[in-house]
């Protein structure tokens, strides 16, 4: 089953081509890392997949349904790169934030998720009063509360301390392995991608590489694009993780 299928996707912003003729698919249980330089179209691609932006060309299907008719949004957990509301004066508690958009409140799930992210004691605090790291953990809890089948993270750990960052990635890996949750992780940190993801999509307006890490590490072309040292670092991190399992 294709969880996501992208066909010939092209997106222009103010007349400039931001992503160009992209096609790929993500299968159930995949852990896909999306990497690329600044302005390479990573976040734009995610926003097109989620219907936040409308592509000028091409199409997107989620859970084998065209995006336009897709309505099972509770199967998706999304953590955007930036949240508009995270200002000092937004009157929303951690509890309210984690429950955002939920028609039926599940107190047990709320408590479990807050505890998991280590923010149970902050439940009634206003989100604007928290540190950026705590805000980010709140947003992660919001993405995880429904135990979705597809998780999409856009630079999820930028503001997290190393310990919370490790807890977060271990959690995503656990969800991926035990529950078969499909994960798409957008990050600059190629080391993290090498460590946790099984497939890599390297983007620079168009797809430079899409495939498994084994293919990536074996490809002499990639050494030419990334530089031998970078490729070696990503592959070393990936092999280290594989060997430890």
């Amino acid at each position: 089953m294709n969880i996501i299928r992208v066909d010939n996707l092209t997106f222009f912003y103010n007349g400039l081509e931001v992503i160009s003729d992209i096609s790929f698919s993500v299968k159930k249980g995949d852990y896909l890392g999306i990497a690329g330089p600044n302005g390479s179209g990573k976040s734009t691609l995610i926003k097109n997949i989620l219907g936040i932006l409308q592509p000028q060309k091409g199409s997107v299907s989620i859970f084998d349904k065209p995006l336009i008719s897709f309505n099972q949004w509770n199967r998706i957990g999304y953590l955007p790169q930036r949240i508009n509301a995270l200002n000092q004066h937004f009157p929303c508690t951690v509890e309210e934030t984690v429950n955002l958009g939920m028609k039926i409140r599940n107190t047990a799930a709320l408590k479990r998720t807050l505890k998991l992210m280590g923010i149970g004691h902050l439940a009634t605090r206003l989100i604007g009063e928290l540190s950026y790291g705590e805000q980010q953990r709140t947003m992660l809890a919001r993405a995880l509360i429904n135990q979705p089948d597809l998780l999409i993270f856009d630079e999820p750990t930028t503001a997290l301390d190393p310990e919370t960052r490790d807890i977060f990635y271990s959690l995503t890996e656990e969800m991926n392995r035990s529950r078969g949750t499909t994960i798409i992780l957008v990050t600059h940190d190629t080391g993290v991608i090498g460590q946790y993801a099984r497939n890599l999509l390297y983007l620079d307006k168009k797809i430079i590489f899409f495939g498994t890490f084994e293919d990536f590490c074996a490809s002499p072309d990639m050494a030419g694009i990334f530089g031998l040292t970078s490729q070696h670092m990503i592959c070393h991190q990936h092999n280290k993780t594989e060997n430890s399992i």
Partner: peptide, 14 residues
């Protein structure tokens, strides 16, 4: 509430 919090995020909640 969701739209006020973040319109793009609200869109991804359906």
């Amino acid at each position: 509430l969701a739209v006020t919090f973040d319109e793009e995020l609200a869109l991804t909640m359906g």
